[in-house]
């Protein structure tokens, strides 16, 4: 847990965190995951009504599903790249 913070910090320092995020975002857009999640969010908003839902509630509902829906190929690619970065000089 302690190391989590440290690792995060060094990723931020090197700028790699932003790069990885961008790569992940691109891959998730390409494979259609982004559209899926977007539709899911819209659905929930429609069901509850725009006035009755907060962003916090949405986040709670969608995050777990979002993680589950990430295609294996994308996961694999990102993990591989992150690990490669770890083994290089940080």
């Amino acid at each position: 847990m302690l190391y989590k913070t440290s690792i995060e910090q060094s990723l931020i320092l090197s700028g790699e965190k932003d790069r990885f995020k961008e790569l992940l975002r691109t891959r998730l857009t390409e494979c259609g995951w982004r559209d899926q999640i977007q539709m899911l969010c819209r659905q929930i908003v429609k069901e509850r009504g725009v006035q009755n839902i907060t962003a916090d509630e949405l986040i709670g509902e969608v995050t777990a599903k979002g993680r589950a829906l990430v295609p294996d190929a994308v996961k694999k690619e990102l993990l591989q790249k992150i690990k490669a970065h770890f083994s290089q000089d940080m």
């Binding site: 990885f20 995020k21 986040i59 979002g66 993680r67 990430v70 992150i82």
Partner: peptide, 20 residues
Amino acid sequence: EAVLNDLVDSVVLGIVFEVH
């Protein structure tokens, strides 16, 4: 794994904000 999960969560967050 931890890094990846964090990244995915933050991407989801982005989409939620957009729709919201």
